[in-house]
Design a protein around this nucleic acid. Sequence first.
DNA 1: GTCTATAATAGGATAGAC
DNA 2: GTCTATCCTATTATAGAC
Lengths: 194, 194
Amino acid sequence: MANTPQPGTRERIVHAASLLMQRQGYEGTGIKQVAQEANATLGSVYHFFPGGKQALGVAAVEHADQEFAGLLAKSLSEEADPAQAIAGCARTLARLLRDSEWMDGCPISATALETTGRAPDIEQAVAQAFQHWRDLVADTLREAGFPEDEARDLSHTVISTLEGAELTAQVARSETPLIVAGKHLTRLIDSYKH
Amino acid sequence: MANTPQPGTRERIVHAASLLMQRQGYEGTGIKQVAQEANATLGSVYHFFPGGKQALGVAAVEHADQEFAGLLAKSLSEEADPAQAIAGCARTLARLLRDSEWMDGCPISATALETTGRAPDIEQAVAQAFQHWRDLVADTLREAGFPEDEARDLSHTVISTLEGAELTAQVARSETPLIVAGKHLTRLIDSYKH
DNA sequence: GTCTATAATAGGATAGAC
DNA sequence: GTCTATCCTATTATAGAC
């Protein structure tokens, strides 16, 4: 069996940056704070990220991309019916949000909004993450028998709606927007089965 | 006929703060930058907002609330069928986003995400704005004959989906997410007519 | 109400010893 | 790779003349 390697410094830095940027945004997160939270020194951060804060932002977004993709893939594989699976994903997001006392919403949307049009590297990483998530949904729908164009269109709305519902749920400190969004997405997808 | 009063200093400051926070977020926007953009001095900003940056943030969010509510109300009144009206609203948002070269997305979401759990006054103004927008949608649906619970649930998903689609459209620099979201929202609302 | 100057602090980033 | 010290600039906020 493989050993579970204890996280190296670089890993701890990326993890801390990702979490802090999720909660406070990109501009609201300081490099010194990241170093402190990661039990690393400022020198170590700049050793691993000579590109400075922007490079750290890119790594944080890429890390969050993989993390949410894992959650999404797990949700999609847990139920045979993709329409039901997506509602389950919304419920999981609602639970995680409530359990974090409404702190942990989408891990990249704050960073996305603050840096759009101002930090091309981060912008690209964000665009890639959203595309990645849409592809997971579209692939699942295609495998379930949906025609190509319906699968693609629905993948757009699934990700958009989950994204928006997570934002409004966080702001309202209520699970309702996510639960209702899950229900409506199931209904929308099912409406294409006729 | 009423004169069109030229905007006073306070108005110019709020307008500039709202626009800059929409594009750069709350943390990414400096008070000095707001003053400069509003053709005001730093002293004037603190004269009108003794509460400092947080108070300015609250005023900016409240201003954006009214602004988007106006756009939404106009869209909802332009078509007799609310399901069609919402698709029209999505198209308008897509056009505004493209025309601003992908800079002007939702005016409060960046500020919302950065300040949640950290600036109670702003948080409350944001929550109020979302509630306001949902109410406009719910009222329209109720007037169109939808039962109370369906109208309320749909208003959640309409705002969540528009919000998420605006975010993903901005990131992808594409009108597609908003156009597709509008189409799917129409379909979802129509599915409750049977 | 408006303006300039300035205080007090925190930000990103770098240098160089170890 | 890690650590500390430091530079430079920007930030929020205040003071006080006009």
